[in-house]
């Protein structure tokens, strides 16, 4: 398990310019991290080096399975660690994001992404300190069971929107969309 770095992440879901991300990071309070999403035209991996020059807080990437097969998920996890991200938040990804007419891929679900990332840790492809979180939502029944499953299987955190409540307080990252 990676060391806990922060409980809050400012979330930039869609990156369309490096300048916007840099300006947003400059406003992030001390002790809060950033979470860079994959919904924009610019991939977080492409700007990680630039952001790292000025932002010293915890830096996470949101890796969505939408539009990726397992080979690309594998590559993205290893690349994110190599590019300086402290951890990743896995999610299936918004189905309707984009034009919506491309063939949906969804080769892996978040549980399978978790297993893949843990295997990468196990064989030394990413460091043991690389933090693994899984997107979830507040809820009982199936939602709570699945969240428990993620943590039992080896996820460091469940990642929730900031207005959510959670029974897993010490293992929850709160995500706050950038203003």
């Amino acid at each position: 398990m990676g060391a806990p770095l922060t409980a809050r992440l400012v979330y930039i879901a869609s990156i369309e310019s490096i300048e916007f991300v840099a300006a947003s990071c400059a406003k992030v309070p001390a002790g809060t991290g950033i979470l860079l999403g994959e919904y924009g035209r610019i991939n977080p991996l492409a700007i990680a080096g630039d952001i790292r020059k000025s932002f010293t807080g915890p830096m996470f990437i949101e890796i969505i399975s939408k539009n990726k097969n397992r080979d690309l998920v594998d590559s993205t996890v290893v690349s994110s660690s190599a590019c300086g991200f402290d951890g990743a938040v896995f999610a299936s990804g918004l189905f309707n994001a984009g034009a919506g007419i491309a063939k949906p891929v969804y080769d892996l679900d978040p549980a399978q992404m978790l297993k893949l990332a843990l295997a990468l840790k196990g064989n030394g492809k990413i460091p043991a300190s690389f933090i693994i979180a899984i997107r979830s939502v507040t809820g009982e029944g199936p939602v709570a069971r699945r969240a428990r499953f993620y943590l039992d299987e080896g996820a460091d955190y469940i990642a929730l929107e900031t207005d959510a409540s959670t029974p897993f307080e010490r293992q929850t990252l709160l995500i706050e969309p950038v203003a």
Partner: peptide
Amino acid sequence: CPKGVRNGPCEGIKGTRCEV
């Protein structure tokens, strides 16, 4: 499941409803 999730639900669930 529109995403074909074999270990669900995914984070898109809205209460009991499907995200899509």
